[in-house]
Design a protein around this nucleic acid. Structure first.
Lengths: 249, 249
DNA sequence: CGTTAAATGTCGTCA
DNA sequence: TGACGACGTTTAACG
């Protein structure tokens, strides 16, 4: 592991270090005073100020100010970084295509440059996602409802794949939509599309009869729902089951 | 503007520099070999590897590997950073509440630390957003349709505020939903909710008559729509108007 | 605070 | 490559 570090370098010196770092595939961070402009899906301009520019060997570029989780400007992985000195000023340009986008960072001053060859793990072990919720339910279907029997996950339909397809104790088809956290109205709409698609598939004649039980049931599994989502659930005759992706401690 | 920079510092030396930097409100970047663990809405663990840790004075923390636009782990603004040396090893912990979340970075080695007091502009001038699209239409309503007349923007309804409310040449109420880019089925659902809410508001009796024209029209303005979104638009009897947020060059 | 919808969302997966 | 939905989404606006 090698780290390059230069303090208050000249623009031309920074250029050399950047070119070397690109060559080596280093992860680069540059502190400096700069302006930033972007043109692509949208367009933006950012006046002079001190920022942190991060350049990654996979093509990602990030411009960070002293605030926010999000970079003020960026370029996604797959972009190409180039550096040059024009009129004695360092300029870093990152471009990509599809869509065509360009990020330009013009430095007035470079305060600090570091570059590091990165080794070691990149694989994050993350738990508590929607997949954990699915696993939990498949292991213990009664968490959804007594007598619920999962038949298929990611079952295809004309409205896309539904999270879990199964039947209830009465053998009525059930579409289960999973959300790892509190949901709004959009999730109900998603569930409704799956239910409708399945009803059509099973035959329009099987549609809800007046006063009868529905041909296809919809169950939304989520820790909780907003008031508006609850309304829409009631409208559609869907059920909500309160369940966390991981068991409460 | 002052930049602090130390190369291959000891863990204890890093601790001092970090505490000073927190005190000054500096933007900090640390290159080093570390493990990362997170616990909060979800939980994750990341094995040993070289990473870039960015600590911001507003409480944001970012852990970046050599890949991806997104940090592999992070903490949002408003968190609190603390640093300590335990068993001779530097440990940086960032915590926040509501929800309770903790990010812990344990360093095996610190390669480089830089800290900078940030001054200068943070205000980004961004154009090409949905607001530009709204402005464009309000200036030239015929872009939506000949005879379209906007009456209100952000008009409230029981389903939330609609982007543009107006009437067509026949004085039929029109709900316009704006999207700055190609849209999927979710946008049609959003438009449908607004149209239904407005129909209910204007009186259920005004609902679509058999073969008659609808009581309330829905128009989706977006550069383009996916196939499934087009289906749903047709189902609902809504129109699509192809329009970019900024005029084509 | 909670709710809602936008975003240069980003990122994976699958056809 | 485009479409689709999850994400520890983040972020801003509004009640």
């Amino acid at each position: 592991m090698t780290v390059t570090s230069v303090h208050d370098p000249s623009h031309r010196e920074t250029l050399w270090e950047l070119e070397d770092a690109f060559e080596r595939g280093d992860l680069v961070s540059v502190f400096g005073r700069c302006t930033v402009s972007y043109e692509g899906r949208a367009a933006s301009d950012l006046g002079p100020g001190d920022r942190l520019l991060v350049l990654k060997p996979d093509g990602a570029a990030l411009v960070h100010t002293d605030e926010g989780r999000q970079p003020v400007n960026w370029q996604p992985p797959g972009s190409e970084h180039r550096a040059a000195v024009r009129d004695g000023r360092l300029r870093v340009v990152s471009t990509r295509s599809n869509p065509d986008e360009t990020l330009t960072v013009r430095f007035a001053d470079v305060h600090q440059l570091s570059a590091m060859g990165v080794t070691g793990g990149r694989d994050l072990d993350l738990h508590g996602s929607e997949e954990d919720l699915r696993t939990r339910i498949l292991e213990r279907p009664a968490l959804v409802e007594e007598g619920f029997e999962p038949r298929e996950t990611e079952r295809p339909s004309s409205a896309g794949p539904m999270d879990i397809f199964g039947v209830d104790a009465e053998e009525t088809p059930v579409v289960v939509e999973l959300k790892r956290r509190r949901v709004g109205p959009d999730a109900v709409g998603q569930l409704a599309r799956y239910v409708r698609a399945l009803e059509e598939e099973l035959g329009a004649d099987a549609a809800t009869d007046t006063g009868g039980s529905p041909a296809v049931r919809g169950i939304l599994v989520a820790p909780s729902v907003t008031a508006r989502a609850a309304e829409r659930l009631a409208d559609r005759g869907f059920d909500h089951v309160a369940l966390e992706p991981t068991p409460a401690e």
